[in-house]
């Protein structure tokens, strides 16, 4: 397993060429994963705890 992983890490890597854009598959996968994570962070509901109050309400007390 370790040997196969090291081959993946140390290989020349696969690249995607699209006009002037050239990017490795590994970097593209990471960027797409980050964009998916970003979108999920915006749309997935956050587990709500006890009653929150606005910053303004809190500072008025």
């Amino acid at each position: 397993m370790m040997k196969s992983l090291s081959i993946v890490a140390e290989g020349p890597g696969r690249y995607i060429h699209w006009g002037v854009i050239q990017i490795s598959v590994a970097n593209l996968v990471i960027i797409v994963a980050m964009i998916i994570l970003f979108v999920l962070a915006l749309i997935v509901p956050f587990p709500s705890g006890h009653d929150e109050e606005t910053d303004q309400e809190r500072r008025q007390k």
Partner: peptide, 14 residues
């Protein structure tokens, strides 16, 4: 120990 209600979003966790 308390935050405004709009902080209850995953985007504020990063």
């Amino acid at each position: 120990d308390r935050q405004p209600i709009y902080v209850a979003s995953w985007i504020y966790v990063f």
